[in-house]
């Protein structure tokens, strides 16, 4: 067992949460699980010499790439939460099966 199995389990749990949850906050939390699992797998795999002909990436480059990825994911989470709060305040609904305004609009 190695970190790939753990990251895959975490990603699968997050995916199951996205598919099965009805509350938007829980869906966003599940998306965060998927992002965390993907970042862990990226950082872990990038340093492996067996996956690269050049003997694995430089640790500084891995760290810089991971840092940029963290900032992007945090910005996405902030925008997602802002949209959620704005929609919930204007419509009073937070369940995914109730948020059908866009779908039902002609």
């Amino acid at each position: 067992m190695n970190f790939v199995l753990v990251a895959s389990i975490l990603f699968g749990l997050g995916l199951y949460g996205v598919l099965s949850r009805r509350d938007v906050i829980a869906v966003l939390a599940s998306v965060e699980l998927m992002l965390g699992a993907a970042t862990v797998m990226l950082v872990g795999l990038a340093g492996l010499p067996s996956l690269s002909s050049q003997g694995g990436a430089d640790p500084g480059t891995i760290e810089a790439t991971g840092l940029l990825l963290l900032v992007m994911a945090a910005a996405a989470a902030a925008v997602g939460l802002a949209l959620l709060v704005a929609i919930a305040r204007s419509t009073g609904r937070t369940r995914t099966d109730e948020l059908t305004d866009v779908r039902d609009r002609p």
């Binding site: 990603f11 699968g12 995916l15 009805r22 797998m41 795999l45 067996s50 996956l51």
Partner: peptide
């Protein structure tokens, strides 16, 4: 917090995780 647990969601989540593990199992 409510959920709609379904077999389809389980199959998709487990299947995707299984694919990732099987594709990398010999290289890590």
């Amino acid at each position: 917090l409510e959920s709609r647990h379904s077999t389809d969601s389980v199959v998709i989540a487990v299947g995707l995780g299984f694919l990732v593990v099987m594709s990398l199992r010999d290289r890590v």
